[in-house]
Simulated scan of single mutants.
Amino acid sequence: MTGRAVAAEMLSLESALRQLVKVVQRTPVELASPNGALGRYAAGDVRAKRSQPCADLSAMDGFAVAGTEPWTVVGESRCGAPFGGPIGPGQAAHISTGAVIPEGASAVLIKENAQLSDHTLQAIEHPEDGAHIRRKGFDFATGEQVIAAGQRIGPAQLALLIAAGCDAINVGRPPRISILECGDELDAKAAKPGQLPPSNGAMLAAMCASQACETTVSAPLPDDLGAIAEAIETAGSADLIVISGGASVGDHDLVRPALKSIGVEPDFWRVAIKPGKPLLVARRQKQLILGLPGNPVSSFVTGFMFMLPAIRAMLGARDPWPARMYLPAAHDLPPVGPRREFLRATIAPDGAIPLDQQDSSALLALSKASCLIERPEHCGGLKAGTPVPVYLLGNGGNA
Rank of each mutant, 00 (worst) to 15 (best):
A5P: 07
L11T: 06
K22S: 12
Q25I: 06
S33M: 08
G36T: 03
G44Q: 14
D45I: 00
K49L: 15
P53W: 10
F63E: 06
P70Q: 09
W71F: 13
V73Y: 01
V74F: 04
C79P: 06
G85R: 15
I87A: 09
Q91F: 08
A92L: 05
I95A: 03
T97M: 12
A99L: 10
I101V: 14
G104R: 06
A105V: 11
V108F: 00
L109G: 02
E112K: 00
A114E: 07
Q115N: 13
Q122R: 13
Q122D: 12
A123E: 05
E125P: 06
P127Y: 06
A131D: 12
I133P: 07
R134I: 14
R135I: 01
G137I: 08
A141F: 04
I147K: 09
Q151H: 13
Q151R: 15
I153R: 00
G154Q: 10
A159D: 00
L161A: 05
L161S: 01
C166N: 13
D167E: 15
D167R: 07
A168H: 11
N170S: 14
G172Q: 06
R173P: 01
I177C: 07
I177N: 05
S178H: 13
A188Y: 10
A190V: 06
A191S: 13
G194R: 08
G201R: 04
M203S: 02
A209M: 09
Q211D: 14
C213T: 01
D224H: 11
L225D: 02
G236E: 07
I241L: 10
I241Y: 03
G245S: 06
S248N: 09
G250P: 04
D251P: 00
A258R: 01
A258L: 05
K260D: 15
I262N: 11
V264N: 01
G276R: 03
K277L: 11
K277E: 08
P278F: 07
P278M: 10
V281L: 07
G291I: 04
G291S: 07
G294D: 02
S299P: 04
S299C: 15
T302N: 07
G303V: 02
F306P: 02
P309C: 09
A310M: 09
I311V: 15
W321A: 11
W321E: 10
A323S: 13
M325F: 05
L327M: 15
A330L: 10
L333G: 05
R339Q: 08
R340C: 08
F342P: 06
R344D: 03
R344M: 06
R344A: 02
T346C: 11
I347R: 00
I347A: 10
D350W: 08
A352I: 09
P354F: 07
L355A: 09
L355V: 11
D356R: 00
Q357G: 03
Q358T: 12
D359Y: 03
L363A: 09
L364W: 03
L364V: 12
A365P: 10
K368V: 02
A369K: 02
S370V: 05
S370Y: 04
L372M: 12
C379H: 10
G380Y: 05
G381H: 01
T386P: 04
V390I: 15
Y391H: 10
L392M: 12
L393D: 08
N395C: 11
A399W: 02
